[in-house]
Nucleic acid binder design. Structure first.
Lengths: 340, 340
DNA sequence: ATACTGTATGAAAACGCTTACAGAAAACGT
DNA sequence: ACGTTTTCTGTAAGCGTTTTCATACAGTAT
């Protein structure tokens, strides 16, 4: 019934311990030497009053939020969970909190939009397509720490970016199809244009073709959008148009699911008639029928690397403008290999 | 010469617009009527100065953080992504930010642990096993808004809980096995004891047996831990001990993956020799071989319901102490049904 | 003793906002 | 014409910390 009893403040602690609030602050933050005895008295007072510092007051006074922001278009896909895990772990390890914000969900009219930024975080991890160039530029101008994920830095802005070895990974994948399985007509489903992963995978595909003296056939390329439904439709259309292919690189693993369905509907056998390969190695890839040959990307590591870089930046350090994390070919059965 | 680094404050805006800071605050928060003309002048000034309010100052002054905290043991599993999505969407819709914190990851010694709580959030969503009873009690005592997820409220504390219809879902699932497929020896892999889902699924299992006049055989029950590896081992052990079963309820879908492997290794056919059913209907369940019969739980909805309740609480409202979201039987092929 | 170190503490000024409270001006009723 | 409300705006008192500066008090070295 007596709820409205005010929460204790630093002043209460100070009074109880018989010291000044400055001293309490000092034992709280270990920011200046305090006698062992005084420290004890303060600790006890804190304990007894169950005191917790108001972080708002701290932030206001110290101008540091100890919070990093994560900005993404939406929460979904098998990608999200491990990436988030990497980010949270990295942040927690460095003593930072994590504020999460999605930009693609509709906000109601009335609500005052309080975006993530310099006012409530020390730095931002920005995922593809979640912040417009204007705001990105503004933040970068005022020297606000920023790290981009799977997205190139806009025009000469030199914002550090983390991504993975898409090109060489794709090369290995396509080369495997050509060298080991003798495939010649390898279809390719592109991802979204804004996604830098998409662009690099395309380059890897082209490079692999070139390396093996295969000419690029534009009819073999379609838009899969890194999306199960779109990829399903794309695969159907490809077949409907009578395009012949003996293998297909679906762009990513989610698309592979759609392609697999389309192929099944068309009574094509995988991998005998058409080999299917994906990219990412998300958790379900090994459960598909047949188990999917793909390229493993260290998703969690991308996340932790991003925070790591960001915290470096926050602490005033320098970081590489572009970090490429290694990818690894994962051979299962959808390419035609026999693994047990 | 003004300092280039200093970010504009409300005072700068006020001066530029020729009004008091109170007025600026009022147009910012629409908290009192302001003439159209004055509003315009202020807006312009804000625009020109590129002013962004410091949220720390706001929070300190208004004593509201407009932030809700999410506390969980760890970020992982197919569960996490959709739940998080529901939570973020719900929070964003109501104009709240989302602070995420995992409790099971090791924190380095030096870092001052600044836990989520009354000092930096308006309320907390607490997942199973992520906050000890003591702190839970303390927060509840001071009237801090709390919502529990998949976890019963500790002793007479009456903290609202969100969960799903585990018992009736399980009953439907087991009954299907008995009635449609004539199964009689249905093994069951329990989940963790702290998980209330686990307890209720066990009750549902027992209830279904009872309803069909089947006696409960304790040797058919083992610990699967809602975990692929543990379930794999449990299934192997069950078979190793010579326990006979013509069906197995794996507790959840992740465990089903392990069980399926174990069965395959033992040359048991699914569903001919042993029917396998899971619970949750996570994304990969339909990709398993054979596609898994399971119970769909509205994971995303659990998340959004949780924020919804929490925000109700934050606004001083009353909420139900226990919300049960409906589950739905999803019949695929691992139970023996022929679906196309 | 004298002047110098440090080392441990306190007083008080920020930090940037919200929000009573109050006053002025405009609108209204009589 | 006059009070009375209503609408708008300004003044200033917090909100709970951190942090600068000053000070008191030990030690040391002169």
């Amino acid at each position: 019934m007596t709820l409205p009893n005010r929460q204790p403040t630093i002043a209460d602690v100070a009074q109880k311990a018989g010291v000044s609030i400055a001293t309490v602050s000092r034992v709280l933050n270990r920011t200046a030497p305090v006698t062992e005895e005084t420290t004890q008295r303060v600790q006890t007072a804190i304990e007894e009053l169950n005191y917790r510092p108001r972080s708002a007051a701290r932030v206001l006074a110290s101008r540091k939020t100890y919070t990093i922001g994560l900005l993404l278009p939406e929460i979904s896909g098998p990608f999200f969970s491990p990436m988030m895990r990497g980010i949270e772990a990295g942040a927690a390890e460095a003593g930072f909190d994590l504020l999460v914000h999605t930009t693609n969900v509709p906000r109601p009219e009335g609500t005052p939009h309080r975006p993530l930024g310099e006012h409530n975080t020390d730095g931002l991890i920005v995922f593809t397509d979640s912040l417009d160039t204007k705001e990105l530029t503004r933040l970068h101008r005022i020297g606000f720490p920023l790290v981009l994920l799977h997205q190139p830095s806009p025009e000469s802005l030199d914002i550090p970016t983390i991504t993975v070895e898409n090109k060489s990974g794709t090369e290995k994948l396509i080369s495997h199809l050509i060298e080991v399985h003798g495939k010649r007509q390898i279809a390719f489903l592109r991802g979204p244009d804004t996604h830098m992963d998409s662009t690099w995978r395309e380059r890897g595909y082209l490079q692999a073709l070139k390396t093996h003296n295969l000419s690029f056939d534009p009819t073999l390329m379609a838009y899969g959008g890194f999306n199960e439904q779109i990829a399903f439709a794309a695969a159907k259309q490809l077949m409907g148009e009578g395009v012949m292919f003996d293998a297909i690189f679906t762009g990513d693993d989610e698309s592979a699911v759609g392609v697999l369905s389309a192929l099944r509907q068309a009574n094509k056998r995988v991998p005998e008639d058409v080999a299917v390969v994906g990219f990412d190695d998300v958790p379900f890839s090994s459960y598909l029928t047949p188990p999917l040959t793909t390229v493993r990307v260290p998703i969690e590591q991308v996340g932790s690397e991003a925070v790591h870089q960001l915290i470096c930046l926050i602490r005033g350090g320098q970081v590489d403008l572009e970090v490429l994390l290694p990818t690894e070919l994962v051979i299962r059965q959808s390419c035609g290999c026999q693994t047990t």
